[in-house]
Design a binder for these strands. Sequence first.
DNA 1: CTTTGATATTGCCATATCGCAATCTCCGAA
DNA 2: TTCGGAGATTGCGATATGGCAATATCAAAG
Lengths: 101, 101
Amino acid sequence: MAISKINQIPPERLKRIMDIMKSVANPLRFRIICLLCDRPHKVGEMAELLNERQAAVSQHLAPLRMLGLVAVDRTGGTATYSLKEPLLRSLVNCFESHFLA
Amino acid sequence: MAISKINQIPPERLKRIMDIMKSVANPLRFRIICLLCDRPHKVGEMAELLNERQAAVSQHLAPLRMLGLVAVDRTGGTATYSLKEPLLRSLVNCFESHFLA
DNA sequence: CTTTGATATTGCCATATCGCAATCTCCGAA
DNA sequence: TTCGGAGATTGCGATATGGCAATATCAAAG
């Protein structure tokens, strides 16, 4: 990316990108996002698949929710999360390509 | 990415990925990396192009260096940095695609 | 040897993040 | 209404990160 292009990025947009990056830059959140790339999941389901405590998963979902990176579908006591921010999927694909290499 | 694949990722590799993600998850470092994606740069050069203090740029280069994400070519008093980790370039490309959209 | 230009490092303080345990909220079933 | 399951939130101590000013290195020029 050329310097002219870099300096053209609006500050709010840069901030948004950084927020997205930070949200991926945590092992548990990364794995959660990977799961959601596949399909929507319930919280407990994710906790079990990832072998993590429920509270931990919920804690890490919180910032994703606040940034609007995931969507929640609450039906009764359970909550089903799905991916909302397209860039997250791109990022995971980007990693996946590297795993294969 | 499927759950089986996620859990297969070796911990050290996951950690490496997280280190890479964190290094991109900072506005200044992100812009530095963007510059280096284009071509190698000297420290002072980057500071000027990005309109940042020299010390700030140097400080943010430090972690990139320690993680082996960039290479340094020291000739006399000046240091020329270049990109070393391919994933960084992929990530920047990933963002660039989103900017265009 | 001294100076200078280019980088790197250190100390400090404010803020952010992490993991964990405990607690709280809600909804549906009995 | 009372209880249990599913999630969310809070408080806490430990650690990490960020920005800034000041200082240290270091090689080449004089």
